[in-house]
Simulated scan of single mutants.
Amino acid sequence: MKLLVFGRTGQVATELARRVPEAVFLGRDAADLTDPAACAARVATSDADVVINAAAYTAVDDAEANEALASAVNGAAPAAMALAAKARGLPFLHVSTDYVFDGSGTRPWRTDDPVAPLSAYGRSKLLGEEGVREADGAHVILRTSWVFSAHGGNFVKTMLRLSESRDALRVVEDQIGGPTPAAAIAEALITLAGALRAGAEGGTLHFAGVPETSWAGFAREIFAQAGRRVSVEGIPTREWPTPAPRPLNSRLDMSSLARFDLAPPDWRAGLAEVLAELGAREGASGKPWENADR
């Protein structure tokens, strides 16, 4: 199976490259996501069997002031990729987000629940979903949440960095969701790519870590596994204002995964693997994670 992957240095793309190093990965220098026609051309001239979009504008707060740019990257570009994939009869997989929901209620969001994004980032990702569906080719839209890995910027690495100079932190406790290892997302995408290529029916799926927790609960588990003596005070979202509003309820109903023989990953086990890679597990020496963003 030949994969064409938009994205090269992001969390999911990095994990895909570890598992399928022979795939073609397109970074910003090879695929400008602000130019949908150029993205479509890369699909049209590729010899790939499956196309995966693992690239996105992920600066949630910055998107509030740059919605047009976010919409081009997260909306118009994947729509163009999907149309080009449809024209060649290629399955297309696209990574999306829980931010397409408004975060109300407490039950997990089903794939067919009404969408109502609260932020520019969420609106831009919804545009991408709509464009992929309208292309009407074989596709999977994989909504996920709270992605973390040993690469790039993410909550795990932020907590580790703060623990070097702080012995107490205030972290939001009324936002509930599922931290998701990028490695698990990559493995799910590979499984889904094979299923689509074999003729399986795609659609919109939810994929996130279990069990559900809060950001504060996530932080406590990070420090517990890393052996860091940092106390975490849980606070409400109103005490931690951000330019982009965050959904309070990011729980995702993942019952649709069963037909692909996929199961939600245990994020605590994924966290242990990430901390081990970063040399941040309890008892490890050194701090190689400090400069791991580059």
Rank of each mutant, 00 (worst) to 15 (best):
K157P: 06
L162Y: 09
T191F: 03
A182L: 04
V171G: 09
L205I: 07
G152R: 06
L192S: 07
N154Y: 04
G202S: 07
V156D: 03
K157C: 02
P181K: 07
A200T: 06
I176S: 06
E164M: 14
S163R: 02
V172M: 08
I185N: 00
T180M: 10
Q175C: 14
G202L: 04
T204Q: 12
T204N: 02
H206N: 15
A150D: 15
T180V: 05
R170I: 08
T158I: 12
A182I: 07
P179S: 08
A183L: 10
G203D: 01
I176M: 12
M159N: 00
D167W: 04
H151C: 07
Q175S: 11
M159S: 10
A195Q: 08
V147S: 03
V171C: 05
I185C: 01
L162I: 04
L169A: 00
A188G: 06
A200H: 11
L162E: 13
D174F: 00
G178W: 06
V172S: 00
K157F: 01
A168H: 15
R166E: 15
L205A: 01
S165F: 15
I190S: 02
G194I: 06
A195Y: 03
A195R: 12
A168I: 02
E187L: 11
A150H: 12
A183C: 00
G178N: 00
H206M: 04
G153C: 09
T191Q: 12
A200V: 03
G203Q: 06
K157S: 01
V172A: 03
T158Q: 14
A186K: 01
A182T: 06
D174P: 02
R161G: 14
D174A: 06
A193N: 01
G177A: 10
A188M: 02
R166I: 05
D167S: 15
V171F: 10
A200M: 08
G203Y: 01
P181G: 11
